[in-house]
Amino acid sequence: MADAAPATAGTVAPSQPENPGFPPFKYETFPSQLFWLTITFAFLFVVLWRLAGPRIQSVIAARRDQINNDIRIADQFRKDAESASAAYETALAGARARAQKLAEENRKVIDDRINQAKANADADAQKSLAAAEAQIARMREEARVHVLRAAQDAAIEIVTRLIGAPVAETEAADAVRMTTER
């Protein structure tokens, strides 16, 4: 192609100077391509290697550290909160147990007092009952004596009226006893 070009260069060159041929396979452009590729690639490599890479890495690392640190602190707070909560639970349980114990003791004391009072009242009632029963027995005895005496007097009066003879009190008493014990 290079040989053919000069022959027609006069007329065709301005509009299509290097058109014949597939552009990617035009070897005469390769030195320039490689030269500028090397320069630009090397420049970008140095920029990324020395400048951008380390800076990005440092900022990512700093952020990761910050995040890890924050997570650690938050973790610490959580643990503190958990231990505080546990302490509260323990205190609550202790207080509850103490309250239960106090209530139990109180109830026992009250029960004791009630039992005591009941026992006292029972004893008083028993005493009153016994006294009343004794009173009743005594009164019954007195009444019986009075009845016997009345019967005896009546027997003496009756015999005296019937036969006009005096009756000794002992005889009358025997007679009454005989009658009542029969």
């Binding site: 005469e28 452009t29 030195p31 320039s32 391509q33 030269f35 500028w36 590729l37 630009t40 690639f41 420049f43 970008l44 920029v47």
Partner: peptide, 17 residues
Amino acid sequence: GYDVSFTNQSLWMCIVV
């Protein structure tokens, strides 16, 4: 002895980089 002209491709490689 090599043609290392600054071309439209070189220009765009420079622009990219």
